[in-house]
Design a protein around this nucleic acid. Structure first.
Lengths: 247, 247
DNA sequence: AGAAAACCTTGACCGAGATCAAGTGGACGC
DNA sequence: GCGTCCACTTGATCTCGGTCAAGGTTTTCT
């Protein structure tokens, strides 16, 4: 899923601009070229960034906040099909209309590039095209991993899977390497979690309570989560030992 | 889904070799270069083509038959995450190990390219890299469309969705354009359908019987299906009028 | 041909998760 | 401070699809 930070930032620490999702290696010329066609846009929590079917005249990446990709049936059933975290890429070079809604789950800042010049740049810069292919392959793997979650896991396993992804992402951001407890704030409402997991919000609530009761997680308030033992959480998720997810 | 024929073959009718999935426009030089590194492999129905985690030293495309991508949990629960039809591409340039099992659902012939030379070719031929990006984006869209099926549709809708995809693919192959009945043979066992839809085989069987009783489909034997009214079938699938699926 | 193995169907029953409904608790505006 | 709203929790009940079991049909093997 786009839950992964799709990019290796390790050799890119002092990148002068914010679209590191695209510039894996901070090549100076590419950065200058990108710099010239970029602009920022802000969105408030709850706002729809792109409607399914809309013309998309930009591509870009999330700078801060969390956006979600959702599909909706006529009768209102909705399924979240991806989460966009900071540095994740949005848009499909070569396509003109969006295949699903993109919504701001929290307040979001995006760094956008006008599509046409970006595509031109891609044509003349194989490195960017290659990077984009790698990112898209990662997203495809993550989407397929999520198909297993949606199709075959129980409600409890689904919740554990989601928490485990978020926990491990946060761990890699802050307490990387250490095997101590992981602490984070849930960036999603119960309803958003339900839409991601193919459940109802009541079931999400019940299963979170159950995991709390069994001390797989600790809660302070409704959103602040402590995971005392990530291994235990991953067992609950039914994942094989090392996780499988590309986080 | 890889259910789509991912490539526009329309201007490629007399393509002299079989990897049209890669050569969207039959550029002569590319074809010659690809020709030099290609070879064929055959697999029998039921055989595993690639094991999850295996080193993959080739990429390629399906020439005939149907292959499936599946993920399996330790306890044996399995979820099919993609169907590979003729012309669909297999492999991830730039990656060395396979993320899921690839199995021959029917007898399969694949046209393979050794990975290293193929990657070299990609580097020197932006056109191929671009094509591959487009194909991967299509697969990503299809995978996400399938997430809606897995997460939010009822058993009956799931079956109708699958039949509808197969029917429309077959229709575009044979009776294209015409609005008459569509006839095809199911290329999957009930169990494979169940694995694809996140159901049990009993439920698949029951729902197919129900669709037959309601005359949404007609059956001769267990596999030969007639769809008298594709619009009706798509209604049953819960798809919006024009389908959504990129077939 | 006959036996065995796949593959598929149908029935009876059960349970995980949905649905319906009420209530809690914190944030915010007045 | 108090009411209102929103996100969340919890309970009671129902239902869809899973599970277990038996039987039928087609294909394959000997």
């Amino acid at each position: 899923m786009t839950l992964n930070t799709l990019v290796d930032h390790s050799n890119c620490e002092d990148c002068p601009i914010r679209h590191r999702a695209v510039c894996a290696r901070c090549d100076a010329d590419e950065l200058v070229a990108l710099e010239e066609i970029k602009y920022y846009r802000s969105f408030e929590a709850g706002q729809t960034i792109i409607w399914s079917g809309d013309q998309m005249n930009f591509v870009g990446s999330v700078v801060s906040g969390i956006a979600s990709l959702t599909q909706t049936m006529e009768d209102g059933r909705t399924q979240m099909v991806g989460l966009l975290l900071p540095s994740d890429f949005v848009g499909r070079p070569g396509r003109d209309s969006a295949p699903y809604d993109v919504q701001a789950t929290t307040d979001v800042v995006m760094c956008c590039f006008r599509k046409k010049p970006f595509e031109d740049l891609m044509g003349s810069t194989p490195h960017i095209a290659h990077r984009l292919l790698q990112m898209t392959l990662d997203e495809l793997d993550a989407a397929r991993e999520w198909m297993l979650v949606l199709g075959r896991k129980t409600a409890r396993e689904k919740i554990a899977s989601l928490l485990s992804i978020i926990a491990r992402r946060d761990a890699s951001a802050s307490q990387k390497g250490s095997s101590g407890p992981i602490v984070f704030d849930l960036p999603l409402t119960r309803e958003a979690m339900a839409d991601y997991l193919g459940l109802t919000l009541e079931t999400v609530s019940r299963q979170i309570s159950a995991l709390k009761k069994d001390e797989v997680i600790l809660l302070q308030g409704k959103r602040h989560v402590t995971v005392p033992d990530i291994g235990r959480l991953m067992e609950e998720a039914g994942d094989d030992s090392d996780g499988g997810f590309l986080v």
